[in-house]
């Protein structure tokens, strides 16, 4: 069972694609970082909260046939890399699509879905997955 507190800390990123942006060079980080590895000392105190756009295009993908327990109901499914409208690469599961219909360049958007649950009695973990954009 995952730590409830650890999962809770990740809510801003998982629900709303909250990352960070370096106030010095403008680079966006997702998941968020409090320090820019490019500007290093220059970035101290300048890294700001940044909400990433939920829309983007498939940059690359891979179809998963041997799934972990949490995703076994959805196999086969694709894990996609998505270049969002901010130019940031995100990765996640792609759902509500025939895996044979996924193409590089396909417009997608991030939606909220169940990622996992701690058994029948534990916490349900929600987060973003990708679906074809309407």
């Amino acid at each position: 069972m995952a730590s409830v507190a650890k999962e809770w800390r990740e809510i801003p990123g998982r629900y709303n694609l909250r990352g960070t942006k370096c106030g010095s060079c403008g680079k966006v980080f997702f998941p968020s970082r409090s320090f820019c590895p490019v500007c290093r000392r220059e970035s101290i105190g300048k890294v700001e909260d940044y909400k990433l756009d939920r829309h983007g295009e498939v940059y690359s993908f891979s179809v998963v046939h041997e799934a972990p327990e949490s995703c076994s109901m959805l196999k086969p499914y694709a894990v996609v890399m998505v270049r969002n409208r901010d130019g940031v690469l995100l990765s996640g599961q792609m759902v509500d699509v025939d895996v044979d219909a996924i193409e590089i360049g396909m417009p997608v958007r991030a939606v909220l879905r169940k990622l996992d649950a701690d058994g029948l009695a534990g916490v349900i973990h929600y987060g973003f997955k990708f679906t074809p954009d309407l």
Partner: peptide, 16 residues
């Protein structure tokens, strides 16, 4: 609903 959908995800999508 897909196995990863429930009232939380449906209500969220509608609200967004």
């Amino acid at each position: 609903p897909s196995p990863d959908e429930d009232v939380v995800t449906i209500a969220t999508e509608a609200a967004r």
